[in-house]
Structure formats: structure tokens, C-alpha cells
Nucleic acid binder design. Sequence first.
DNA 1: GTCTATAGAAGGATAGAC
DNA 2: GTCTATCCTTCTATAGAC
Lengths: 205, 205
Amino acid sequence: MTEHEKHTEEKIFEAATEVFEEKGFSAARMQDISQKAGINKALLHYYYRTKEQLFNAVFEMLAKKLFNRFSPIFEENLSLDEKIKYFLREHISFLQKNPRLPSFILYEINQNPERIKRLIDNLALVSSMQKLMEMHKAELKEYDIDEKNLPQVMTSIVSLSVFPFAAKGILSSIFDKLGYDFNTYIEERKDFAGEFVIKAIKKGK
Amino acid sequence: MTEHEKHTEEKIFEAATEVFEEKGFSAARMQDISQKAGINKALLHYYYRTKEQLFNAVFEMLAKKLFNRFSPIFEENLSLDEKIKYFLREHISFLQKNPRLPSFILYEINQNPERIKRLIDNLALVSSMQKLMEMHKAELKEYDIDEKNLPQVMTSIVSLSVFPFAAKGILSSIFDKLGYDFNTYIEERKDFAGEFVIKAIKKGK
DNA sequence: GTCTATAGAAGGATAGAC
DNA sequence: GTCTATCCTTCTATAGAC
């Protein structure tokens, strides 16, 4: 593959990423993608054969980009408290730079759940979660967490960071009316979310 | 309007609701809608002129259906604790019967935020929230809630009920691998979510 | 590898008969 | 009010020249 080829293929991929993320698969137009990439429409097919294949390449990259953000939490050498706060701060900051990602991924997966199957295999979620539980076994006695409600706790944590972006369109409108500002709300959320979770899962006396 | 007319128009509307909710605006086909309604494609245009207008009618109905579920909480004569628990139980039960609603509404609003503007005016959210704060003024001293973090608290509550359905495609896949079941998870969530929130907002000593 | 031109199919919308 | 037939546009995809 020559330098030039690589250049063109990358331009296409980047343009496709922008258009698909903004419009979704069905509303995206090959014409828009080629224009944004500054090349001819026929070239898209030369490099990626079909719209579907181009979309799959983009989708896989974006999904990995999003899900890989969940991994660091399993590695850091921190207390469980700090780990949760750290994760939520980082995750919200990441989504702040990629606000359209949650809506795009969630929607396209609901449209076609098969898309995610292969990716999930690579996530190694089961072992990571077991590892996490093991690592903080001693601390866990201070929390209302056990194997049974672990999915509830995990999804609650994730929802606090993802939902505001998935619902950005609605929240922005409502905040406008209430005199709040979405960006300020997100800034505050970086700390709020962590504290909210910690209080919720600490064992009451 | 004759009985027969009404019948046909309703059949179209119901078929359109199903198709739009499942596929979204762009991927939905007028052909599919007419087939599902058991009538000819031309009739869709006779009753609703364009795809856009048919979609708007459906969208408005579904959005109201979803948002009206937020109102009861402002009316019931309950303590703040009970009100939150009651709301989450009811809201999750409602979404259990309409699992595709969150994904559809969130996505279509992000695609076109104008769609929600008019609806929000009718929600009277500002006054309702003020009324709620006023009503529980005495109790509020026991909670970490004030005007400043009210949006954080409110969106956190909503996210706990809405996110699992918006992310149903992903969660189902992950749960499969972990040996959990999505429906069981939702059943448990009806109580879990309320308790989670209450603990999170109760003032620590 | 990149372009122009165009095929070929699909989808929204309308005309016109009944 | 409902149907058949068809128009017209748009979109994906390919053929073929350079």
C-alpha cells in the first residue's frame, strides 16, 4: 500500500466516520461522504465495496473507542471509592469530547444487535469483573455490593455518565427553559456522579 | 368523518407507529407501513400528505406518551422518599411494556432537536419542579438537594430507569455472556433504583 | 488509483379511474 | 375513499476511459 493510497483510504474513513456518526446508517449518503473526503463517489466503492462494509468498519472503530474506555478502571491501583470516582470523571470527560457517540452506538446496536456480538467477545467482561471483585474483596464489606446486584450497580454507574449525552437533545432544550447550561451541567457532573454513587453503595449502619 | 374513514386513518396511524418506532424515520418505508395497515400506498398520502407529516403525528403521540409519565409524581400525596420510589417503579414498569420508546425518542430528538421544542412548552416543567420543591420544603433538610444540584439529581433519577432500555441491545448481549437475564434484571431494578437514589441523596451525618 | 457517465433499483409522491 | 399505474427523484453500485 502506497503512501497516497493510505492517505485516500484514511480520508474516506474519516469522512465516513463524521457522516455516519451524525446521520446514522440509513440517513447517511455516500455522496456526502465522498464530498467531505474531497474525492469521487466511485472511489468509496473501490476501497470499501459497499455502504454496509464502510459502515461496519466505522462502527467497529467507534464501538471499540467507546468500550475501551471502560477498561482502565480494572487496572489502576486505587481504592474502590477512588476507582469509581476516577472512572466517572474520565468517562464523562471523554464523552464531553465525543458527545454524539452514545446516541449513535446505542441506536445502531438496537437496530441490529448482531453488530455487537463479536465485539463483546473481545471485551473479556466476565473475567474483568471477577478480577475487580477479587481485588477489592476486603473493601467490599463496606459496600452494598454482591454478585447478585452487581449488574444493577454497574449499569447504574454507567448510566450516570452515558445517559446525559444520549439525551443531550432533550436536556439542552429543557435546561434552556430552566436557565441552566448543558456544558456547565456536564462539568459539575464529573464530580457529582462519583459522589452520588459512593453514597448509594456505602453500607448504612 | 365517517366511521370507516376513522377506521382507516387509525389503522394507518397504528401501523406507522410500529414501523417508525422499530426502524426510525430514515429506515422506515411507506411501503412497509401500508402493507402492515393492509391498504394501498397511495392512501397514506391521501390521509397524511407526506412521510414527514405522518412521522410527526406519530412522534408527537409517542413523545407525549413518554413524557406524560413524568407528571404523576408531582401530584401524589406522598413523602419525597415514597414519591421517588413510586415514580421509579411505575416508570420502569411502563418502559417494560414499551421498551423501544426511549431509544426511538432520544435518537430522533438528537437528529432534530426542533422536534421537541413545542412539546416542552406544554410540559410546564419549571413550575412543576418549583411546586415539588415547595411541597417538600421541610423534608428537603434531610437531603443533599438544593436548587443548584437539582438538575443533577433529577437527571440521575431518570437515567436509572431510562438507560437500561436505551441500552437494551448491548445489555442483553452482555448479560447473556454473564448468565444473567435482561427481564429478571428489569424486575429487580424496579426496587433497586429507588433504594439506590434514596441512599445517594440522604444527608450523611 | 481516480474520474465521468450511467445503469439499475427503490422510494416518495401524484394522476386518474372507479 | 380506495385502487392501479406511473412519474420523478434519489441513491447505491458498476463499467470503462484515462
